[in-house]
């Protein structure tokens, strides 16, 4: 069964179309990376799938459950990491993790040891019992990443995962993503970092002005664009759409 099916998805903000007629199907064990310039509609698409923005049209089906009709059941399969990580200032990282575990009805025995291992792996063990108001952007991002492993979601939605992370943690995060993929999870990642996209994606999508211009793997992308350089392909596809619109 497909983890995610998106049909004719669209969002209009005050007569301005942010996303238009987006179709997509993601299978288990797939890492889908959505690329696009600023304001192309990447975050809006991700937020619609996370249930944070209401689509103007179209359907989102997560593990066979229609998000619009059964939001609570569908959201139980999602893990979401926003581009600006947020933790309540007056909670420590550990308290935040406990809070999320409570919201998802997870017993302490089921996550405490596992979380301790992730804290260590991501290098936040030293800070985890301090107020998050003292955390850097990167540290917050790491704690938010940890909460993904609490409820074992089938579909993981991540907006700009590498922002604020040091090179060592970026490498660890990449390794974790591959592990999740190998466990059969589906990852939907939005990013600007082309090298990261090339390295990690099973499939790429390029969105420009709210329209999904391309989906496929790097080989398919090279075939239609006549280049192996992802940067060149990206610029060509996004510029083409801008020129055509003019």
């Amino acid at each position: 069964m497909s983890t995610l099916i998106v049909r004719n998805l669209g969002k209009t903000f005050r007569n301005v179309s942010a996303v238009n007629g987006l179709d997509l199907e993601l299978r288990p064990g797939e890492i889908f990376v959505l690329l696009g310039p600023n304001g192309a509609g990447k975050t809006t698409t991700l937020k619609m799938i996370a249930g944070l923005v209401h689509p103007s049209e179209g359907d989102i089906i997560i593990k066979g459950i229609n998000l619009n009709e059964h939001p609570i059941a569908a959201k139980a399969h999602i893990g979401y990491v926003p581009d600006e990580p947020f933790i309540y200032n007056k909670l420590t990282g550990r308290e935040f993790i406990n809070f999320i575990a409570g919201i998802y009805r997870i017993e302490k025995d089921h996550f405490e040891e596992r979380m301790a291992a992730y804290f260590k792996r991501l290098g936040i063990g030293e800070w985890i019992d301090e107020f998050s108001e003292k955390y850097s952007h990167g540290m917050k991002q790491k704690v938010i990443m940890c909460q993904l492993f609490l409820h074992n979601p089938d579909l993981i939605l991540i907006d700009e995962p590498l922002v604020g992370l040091d090179p060592k943690t970026s490498k660890t995060v990449r390794e974790i993503f591959f592990e999740l993929r190998d466990q059969g999870k589906t990852l939907f990642i939005c990013t600007h970092t082309l090298s990261f996209a090339r390295e990690i994606a099973s499939r790429l999508g390029i969105i420009s002005e709210g329209v999904l211009k391309f989906t496929g793997d790097l080989d398919a992308l090279s075939t239609i664009s006549g280049s192996r350089d992802i940067e060149e392909i990206y610029l060509k596809l996004t510029e083409e759409s801008t020129t055509a619109d003019r």
Binding site: L52, I72, P82, E84, F86, Y88, Y104
Partner: peptide, 11 residues
Amino acid sequence: RAGIWLLGSSP
């Protein structure tokens, strides 16, 4: 605050 995303995307 911005944590509303967390509640919004939770069950």
